[in-house]
Nucleic acid binder design. Structure first.
Lengths: 230, 230
DNA sequence: ATTATCTATAGATCTATAGATAATGC
DNA sequence: ATTATCTATAGATCTATAGATAATGC
């Protein structure tokens, strides 16, 4: 929240009580929807669930958001720009420091860590957003939304990867990225499967552990594809 | 279908017309449900969709399957044993041929290829089953079902991986497997994202291309985790 | 007589809207 | 006067069942 209204000469009105109320309600509803849709998916989560979660009446949700689709998309849009801009900035920053010879691992680290840090340190709502996006990412309908939002950043990453791996075919770069995406989305989903499987040795919500391993693991994978071609 | 009824002495009756009808209807319904749930998920797919898909009335579905849950689970159970037994057999076969020194890549190849071959060569219903399982695998509710079915095979794989990587910590083996699972499920999901991203260069339903790369890629990842520990 | 299939419908959600009421704004 | 919130309810699904009808079995 930026309160620039009392320092500009242009007499921007102070936010009225109603404006504040409105903003607060919008946020409450979006927070609740984020949690509900992250937990139960687009089809499993209902407007009634959302209403219960934030203790308002369903009609208020329709008052602020035309319909379920609009609510769903608003949940995505509220944070989508933040994440893609952060990733883009991290990639550009990495490009500058790496200069002529970027490394696969460096590029992946920039791309992935920007995200993981946000989800780890951003509190439970960002965590819910992560799961929300992950579910979105592996439905065919959701894929369109995700594509539009993240393709620019992803293509940026792929560009750097190509320069880091000049002797790798373009297909292999895409397939490698496909594996990275899968592992990332599965991690963000946080299904708890690994917890059972490892008998508690690993917790699937331990994003720090994932962050510490993933770029490293995947970078080696890309390099191995290269040797496969020869 | 095994028609052992006319060669045994124990006078097993020939399947009556009704029995055949029953079997055919069951299969039709399961096929349709497999396609519907694969496409729209557990919550998005309805019994009405299934009925329309195979051109029977919804009440017939309730006649053969008590309720939606039972139908859903039957879709899973129909093929689950086939896949896990195939994988188990492939892993045991690999263990025998590899002897004292199994390799990461060999183990992964046995584990993954058993699946991919089935999905590639088993026709469209097996393809639908793949997507069905993938969606199951990244919901928290579905995870329980998947766990019960596949944990034995997965633990078998993990056992071999541990012997192939004696100097890798147990945690790292599990995290590596976590990444493999993610990439696999994402591939089976077949969202079509890669098609757009690569402007048609790669098709996300090209399981042959994935099969050719995945074990190789992931094996290198595991080895890289090892070097991280030192 | 039994089993497979369909017709009709109850009952439970769920989304969405119209219209009433309460709170703020000018 | 405008905006925020709630009440009440319409209308569209969706699951599930009861009971009728059609086909096979003995």
């Amino acid at each position: 929240m930026i309160d620039n209204w009392h320092q500009t000469g242009v007499a921007l009105r102070a936010p009225s009580k109603k404006a504040k109320q409105r903003a607060a309600s919008l946020e409450q509803i979006l927070d609740a929807a984020e949690i509900v849709f992250a937990r139960r998916g687009h089809d499993g989560g209902t407007i009634q669930d959302v209403a219960k979660e934030c203790d308002v009446h369903t009609s208020l949700i329709h008052y602020y958001f035309r319909n379920k689709e609009a609510l769903f998309e608003s949940v995505f849009r509220r944070r989508a720009d933040v994440t893609s801009e952060r990733r883009m900035a991290a990639l550009e920053q990495y490009e500058r420091t790496a200069g002529e010879h970027p490394s696969v691992e460096g590029a992946l680290r920039a791309f992935l860590d920007a995200d993981f840090d946000l989800y780890c340190q951003g509190g439970p709502q960002w965590m819910a957003f992560a799961a929300f996006c992950a579910r979105l990412g592996h439905t065919p309908e959701g894929a369109t939304l995700v594509d539009e939002q993240f393709n620019p950043v992803v293509l940026k990453l792929i560009g750097i990867l190509k320069r880091a791996l000049p002797d790798l075919s373009e297909q292999d770069v895409f397939w490698g990225f496909h594996f990275v995406t899968g592992a990332l989305l599965h991690s963000l989903c946080n299904t708890g499967r690994l917890d059972h499987l490892s008998a508690g040795l690993c917790r699937s919500d331990d994003f720090e552990a994932i962050k510490a391993r993933m770029a490293n693991f995947m970078a080696a994978g890309f390099r191995a594809l290269r040797s496969r071609e020869m």
